[in-house]
């Protein structure tokens, strides 16, 4: 499936993501990482941390509706893979981000913006993993 090259809207969306990361640090003093939010919601030892993560998650979940109300069109979500592939992918992503200590938001944006060597290493690693996987699936196996 071909998708349109969208440098301007993608950079604008990215800038909003950056703005949210800066605001979370400025107001709450935290790194904005999706893995950390999900993982933190699975722990119940600190009520105020849990509530903060729940509020962040609710804001994220409200985004498609907000986008629909403001622009008149909801987000484009095309899923070109099967349901078993989605389930397998979810488990592997959850497993990997736990041991890797973060994902595209926590390492890829927040950590790299602090020039953290750990995050730069993680980003290179997950990019290699994804490039190789897509190449193997689409061009070696040929799905």
């Amino acid at each position: 499936m071909i998708t349109e090259f969208t440098p301007l809207t993608s950079a604008f969306g990215g800038a909003l993501v950056g703005l949210s990361a800066v605001l979370l640090m400025a107001l709450h003093g935290r790194i904005l990482g999706a893995t950390g939010i999900v993982g933190g919601l699975m722990r119940f030892d600190n009520a105020s941390d849990w509530a903060l993560r729940a509020a962040l998650l609710l804001g994220m979940l409200a985004a498609p509706t907000a986008l629909l109300l403001v622009t008149g069109t909801g987000p484009t979500i095309d899923i070109p893979v099967s349901t078993p592939a989605i389930l397998l992918s979810g488990v592997i992503v959850g497993f990997g981000t736990f041991f890797g200590g973060g994902c595209t938001s926590g390492h890829g944006i927040c950590g790299n913006a602090r020039f953290s060597r750990r995050s730069i290493t993680a980003t290179i690693s997950f990019m290699i993993g994804a490039f190789v996987t897509v190449f193997v699936i689409r061009h070696v196996i040929g799905v």
Partner: peptide
């Protein structure tokens, strides 16, 4: 742990195209 965990995440990301964020 960091490198293998992140590589594993990348493999999962490449299977369906969803990262947590």
């Amino acid at each position: 742990r960091l490198v293998l965990g992140s590589l594993t995440f990348g493999v999962g990301w490449g299977i369906a195209g969803f990262c947590p964020g």
